[in-house]
Structure formats: structure tokens, C-alpha cells
Amino acid sequence: MTIRRPRDLESERAALRAAADRLLAGTPLRSASGKLTASELLRESALRRDVAYGDHKDLVEEFQARVKAQRCTPSAMQELADEVAALKKRLAAVTEELAKERTLTAALRRITAELDLELHQAREELELSGNVARLPTPRRQASRR
């Protein structure tokens, strides 16, 4: 048989109030999203739904009224949203710059290939024409001495 301990209603109310204050301040401890909803209030307070709505419904409704009165996101959440927006802008700019660099690199590779081909063709033409005598390179001269 399970023995039930008497519940401490005041500590439950204090937990709900503290959770509401943390959520409204934008500094949640247990809530991952920090949204200003009743579900997040319960997650933040670590109380069961039946306990909160059974004995402390007034505190849940008070939290919902404070959220409506605030009509804005918590400052910490707003800072994060601003940072995300700035990072998205920066990412878009870097992505655009990368696309330009890739286009330029591809053009330079094509130009390099064309110039290499022209150089090989010019060398072959020089070898085939008997009019031009090749001069020895400095390395060959050094090795003859």
C-alpha cells in the first residue's frame, strides 16, 4: 500500500509563481522553448497538470493574464531572435559571395586550360618548323662546364 504524504500547497503556489516570473523574465530553467504558455508554465514549475489546474487554477489564469498584458516576447527571447536574424543575413551574404567565388574559379580554370592548350600547340609548331633553333637553357650550359 502506498502512503501518501500531505501536499504542501504553499510550496506548490510558490513554485508556480517563481516559474511564471522566470518565464516572463525570459530566464527559464526547465523549459526548452521559453514560450509563454500554460504548458510551459507547468513544465517550468515541475508540477503535474492535475495539481496545477485542480488547486492552483487561479495562478495559471493569473499567468495567462500577465502574458496578455505583456503582449511581447521576453527580452532574452527577443535578443535570441535578433541574433538569429542577423546570422541569417550574414549567412545569405556569405553564400552569395561563395557563389560568386565559385563562378570566378570556374572561369579561371577554363582560361588556364585554354592557355595550357595554346602553349602546347605553340611548342609543337615550333618543333615542327625547322626555322627556329632552340637555345640551350642555363641548366644545360652549367652542366657542360
Rank of each mutant, 00 (worst) to 15 (best):
G34Y: 06
D82P: 00
M77N: 07
L23D: 10
D55I: 00
N131P: 03
R66N: 05
R144Q: 15
M77L: 14
E10A: 11
T112D: 12
N131D: 15
A142V: 14
A92P: 00
R17I: 10
E118L: 12
L16M: 03
L98S: 10
R102Q: 12
R7Y: 01
K89Q: 13
A122Q: 09
D116W: 03
Q141L: 12
T103M: 13
Q70M: 12
S75G: 02
H56D: 02
D21A: 14
R66T: 04
R22P: 13
L108D: 05
L98Q: 14
K57D: 04
E10K: 11
Q121K: 10
M77K: 12
D82N: 08
E114P: 00
R7L: 11
E10T: 07
T137I: 13
K57R: 07
L24I: 08
C72G: 06
D58G: 04
F63V: 02
R144G: 05
E124S: 13
T2H: 09
A76L: 07
E125C: 03
A93Y: 07
L104I: 09
R134M: 15
A92M: 03
D82A: 11
V60Y: 03
R144P: 00
S31L: 07
C72W: 03
R5L: 08
P6K: 13
R22H: 12
L87Q: 09
E12N: 05
R22E: 10
E96Q: 08
R110S: 09
E118S: 08
P74V: 02
T73E: 14
V132T: 15
G130P: 05
L42S: 08
A142D: 07
V60F: 02
I111L: 08
D82I: 02
E44D: 05
R49H: 13
H120C: 14
A69T: 06
R71I: 01
H56S: 01
